[in-house]
């Protein structure tokens, strides 16, 4: 499932560009949350902008909370794929859903 067929599947996902949606993220087993804003989101992956000084590392497991400032926040597990500079203060973090990785292993 990791071959070209899977890549085609990923490309066909419906993508929604909502660069202003706020989220909160936290490292696994860490109560401290940081802020981010979604820059790109697909079914199984998310890219978000977050302060560079608190950047998670590639491979690190994180929990994202969508709608973190609203009445019904939603939590999802992700694993960081890469991080790149955004501007002087922020970086973009790309991560994949932990659920999708478990599914891939099962497949």
């Amino acid at each position: 499932m990791n071959g070209p067929e899977h890549q085609q599947d990923r490309r066909s996902e419906t993508r929604q560009s909502t660069p202003t949606e706020r989220l909160a993220w936290a490292r696994e087993n860490d109560k401290q949350t940081s802020t981010g804003w979604v820059s790109n989101i697909a079914t199984r992956s998310v890219a978000f902008v977050t302060p560079t000084r608190s950047l998670p590392s590639p491979g690190e497991a994180i929990e994202l909370t969508f709608g973190s400032s609203g009445p019904s926040p939603q939590h999802r597990e992700f694993r960081v794929v890469r991080a790149a500079p955004y501007d002087e203060f922020f970086s973009v973090v790309g991560c994949e859903s932990a659920e999708s990785q478990e599914q891939l292993q099962l497949d």
């Binding site: 909502t18 660069p19 202003t20 949606e21 706020r22 909160a24 949350t33 940081s34 802020t35 804003w37 973190s68 400032s69």
Partner: peptide, 12 residues
């Protein structure tokens, strides 16, 4: 209103 509001909360 900016759609990404709020821009600074206690977590920041």
């Amino acid at each position: 209103r900016w759609e990404g509001n709020p821009i600074i909360t206690l977590e920041d």
